[in-house]
Structures are given as structure tokens and as C-alpha cells.
Simulated scan of single mutants.
Amino acid sequence: MEIQSPTDVDHLAPQIWPVYATVFGDFESYELWRADLFDRHAARAGYRLLTAVDGSRPAGTTLAGFGWGYTGQRGQFWSDLVCNSLPKAITDEWVGGHFEVVELAVLPEYRGQGVGRALHDKLLESVTGRCLLSTSDDPGDPAVRLYLSSGWRKLGVLRPGVQVMGRSAA
């Protein structure tokens, strides 16, 4: 498995979409996902995209997973949602200028092989300061276990079933 940091994100969107749709399934079409999420995020300051590529398949390369994030600021939808959901003392410390892990996805057939951890670690490799993400609050969820074992901690509840986690990068 090779973790790549592609520079031509525009070209990769059609390859990332099937993985996104399989893992999350929250957009009706590629066009909506592209306009409402992918392109908007790719234009943000500090944007990083990583892909996990399996070159061992006979047909060539297969995208096994991806991750992306950017520098989050107040005035952005998710940052403001966090500010409206968590206590002010927490948001004053954590929200604004933080690195936001927005998406981390691995196809089911590649899970349990360290792909998610490799994406996570590479995505945060040179990040200094505060990092935020939202995820399930189910302690049995593999993503939650990954984050907890990587130094993340629960900061509060975004909505029932969804927590906000934070990590101070060294």
C-alpha cells in the first residue's frame, strides 16, 4: 500500500468519489458531492489530500482510501457548529486556526490492515498546534479506537451520537 500526496486533486475527484460514496453514502450524486464538498474544501487554506493506493491488483492501481483536511476557521460551517455546540471555554481554546481532519475513509476490504492509521499519521505528519474532528461517540467504532490510540480526546458532543475530538500536535 502506498500513501500518496497528489498535487492534481481535480483529476482525482472521480477516483475518490466511489470510495467516498461506499464509506459515507451521504450524497445523492457525484455532481452534488463535487460542488458541495470536494471542490469547496480543496479551495481552503492548508488543504491536504492523501490517497492510499493498492498497486498489487492485476488491473493496476486501486484507490483503497483517502483522507483530507485543512485549516479551520470561525465563520466556516463546521467550526461555527462546534462553537454553537460546545462550551465557550473549550471553543475559545480549540476553534480557529486549527487543522481540521475532515474525511478519512478506507474501503471495507482494506480495513484492519493499517491503511487508516497510515493515512491519519501522514495527514498529521507536519501539523503543529491544535487538530479537530468529529466522529461517532461509539467506543467500539474502529475510527474512534484509531483516534484514541493516536492521542485524540473527546472535547464534547456535537449532536447525539457524534462527538468532537481534539489533539494537540507536537
Rank of each mutant, 00 (worst) to 15 (best):
residue 85 S to L: 05
residue 52 A to N: 14
residue 139 P to D: 09
residue 118 A to R: 09
residue 37 L to Y: 10
residue 73 Q to Y: 08
residue 120 H to K: 01
residue 131 C to Q: 11
residue 102 V to A: 02
residue 11 H to W: 07
residue 91 T to C: 01
residue 170 A to M: 07
residue 75 G to Q: 11
residue 74 R to D: 08
residue 133 L to T: 03
residue 18 P to S: 13
residue 36 D to S: 12
residue 169 A to E: 04
residue 115 V to L: 05
residue 29 S to L: 14
residue 58 P to C: 09
residue 58 P to N: 08
residue 152 W to K: 04
residue 53 V to R: 10
residue 151 G to Y: 04
residue 10 D to G: 12
residue 124 L to S: 05
residue 12 L to V: 03
residue 91 T to K: 06
residue 99 F to M: 04
residue 18 P to H: 12
residue 36 D to Q: 13
residue 111 R to Y: 00
residue 82 V to I: 14
residue 34 R to S: 10
residue 52 A to D: 10
residue 122 K to L: 00
residue 116 G to H: 01
residue 137 D to M: 08
residue 164 V to P: 10
residue 35 A to K: 15
residue 112 G to C: 10
residue 20 Y to H: 14
residue 7 T to G: 10
residue 123 L to M: 04
residue 50 L to D: 00
residue 142 P to C: 03
residue 131 C to I: 06
residue 17 W to L: 03
residue 143 A to Y: 03
residue 44 R to C: 12
residue 78 W to K: 06
residue 139 P to Y: 05
residue 80 D to G: 08
residue 48 R to T: 11
residue 162 V to Y: 14
residue 26 D to F: 09
residue 130 R to I: 00
residue 30 Y to T: 06
residue 128 T to A: 09
residue 144 V to H: 09
residue 75 G to Y: 12
residue 37 L to R: 12
residue 152 W to V: 00
residue 116 G to F: 00
residue 164 V to T: 14
residue 30 Y to C: 07
residue 74 R to A: 12
residue 65 G to Q: 04
residue 56 S to Q: 13
residue 157 V to I: 12
residue 56 S to V: 12
residue 8 D to W: 07
residue 149 S to N: 14
residue 99 F to Y: 11
residue 20 Y to L: 09
residue 81 L to R: 15
residue 62 T to Q: 14
residue 82 V to T: 08
residue 72 G to F: 00
residue 164 V to F: 11
residue 61 T to D: 14
residue 141 D to A: 11
residue 144 V to P: 07
residue 92 D to C: 06
residue 157 V to D: 08
residue 13 A to M: 13
residue 119 L to V: 02
residue 133 L to R: 02
residue 86 L to W: 12
residue 60 G to C: 14
residue 140 G to C: 03
residue 50 L to V: 05
residue 17 W to E: 04
residue 140 G to M: 05
residue 54 D to R: 13
residue 65 G to R: 02
residue 35 A to V: 13
residue 67 G to A: 15
residue 111 R to I: 00
residue 127 V to C: 01
residue 54 D to H: 13
residue 70 Y to Q: 08
residue 136 S to R: 11
